[in-house]
Amino acid sequence: MSYALLFSGQGTQHPAMLPWLADDAIVRGMCVRLGVGDWRRALADPEWAERNSNAQMLLTSLALAAWGQLAPMVPPPAAVAGYSVGELAAFSAAGVIDPGAAVALAPQRAEAMDRCAAHAPGGLLAVSGLPEQRLEQLRTEAGLELAIRNGNASMVLGGPVAALDEAERMALAAGAQCTRLRVNVASHTPWMREAAESFFQTLAKVPFSAPRVVLFSNTGDRMRDANSARTALTAQIAQTVRWDECMENIMARQVRCVLEVGPGQALARMWNQRYPTVPARACDDFRSAAAIAAWLNSHSDR
């Protein structure tokens, strides 16, 4: 079997996510850290769910719990990548950092970003349906930065709230599809530079190892050693996420299928649109870990 793991980013968390997930030690520890008795009930409150510190802790913990419960049923993946904050779980799944360390880093990453946002409030806007040149023109006119590059006709813009409002108005008038992401920071843009510098100091105290499986970062590069992995986790906070390149690198590994670990189906959907001959599914599509393993195994002899 040759498959890739993609770990979801922030913004699609919902109370019914990962319906098969068991209440294990990681999940219970997460609830204690977040001060909630039932994380699904907590997610039903949009204000709580969209709070940066809550979301990053929850997504990292649940992704690692999900992978920990699934991993004993399947062979190691051929490639791993994570989208935005999903990199914490991805790097842990690849053996770069301990799961406990990844969970502990999530709120520290969020805190560093929130400090930046306190004096420069911002957010993210997904825009698609326009030619790449027009999208770039719109970004420049609105005074935004390219936060995430998903493909030629799909990008996520980041920056101050007022600039996002103007970009959304212009994009809709031009016939684009727009979605304001459920985040309150201008992730992956220069507005987060201080957060990246702060997080680098945090990561300097954390043991890192070389990846045990093929690991690609949001910078578009393959991680081969501990130092490059530490640098990549820092850089992506204030630099463009090159997800299109991540997908290209994974496809080059000639995987037979792709599994998204996390909430929703956004990454699986992007993959299927780009590479329709290599199927992708999301953990949210299944009712049990055994069903996920069976789907992965069904592609082992193709």
Score class of each variant (00 low, 15 high):
Leu125Asp: 03
Gly122Cys: 06
Glu50Cys: 11
Met223Leu: 15
Gly220Asn: 01
Ser8Phe: 01
Leu130Met: 11
Ser154His: 15
Val214Asn: 04
Ala167Ile: 05
Ala55Pro: 01
Asp114Arg: 02
Asp284Ser: 14
Gln69His: 10
Ala65Asp: 00
Glu50Phe: 05
Pro276Tyr: 00
Arg222Trp: 09
Leu181Pro: 02
Arg224Cys: 14
Arg193Glu: 15
Ile148His: 12
Leu34Asn: 04
Ser61Ala: 15
Ala280Ile: 07
Gln10Phe: 02
Arg180Ala: 11
His119Trp: 08
Phe199Ser: 11
Ala162Arg: 15
Trp67Lys: 02
Met251Arg: 15
Leu18Arg: 04
Leu62Ala: 06
Pro190Val: 02
Leu5Asn: 08
Ala90Asp: 07
Ser53Met: 09
Leu215Phe: 02
Trp39Gly: 00
Trp39Asn: 01
Ala104Gln: 09
Gln13Lys: 10
Ser209Val: 01
Gly220Met: 01
Ser8Trp: 02
Val32Ala: 15
Gly29Ile: 08
Ala106His: 00
Arg169Leu: 15
Leu215Pro: 00
Met57Glu: 09
Val74Gln: 12
Arg40Asn: 05
Ser217Tyr: 00
Tyr275Trp: 12
Gln177Lys: 14
Gln265His: 13
Leu59Gly: 00
Ala102Glu: 09
Tyr275Ala: 13
Trp243Met: 09
Arg40Trp: 03
Pro77Leu: 05
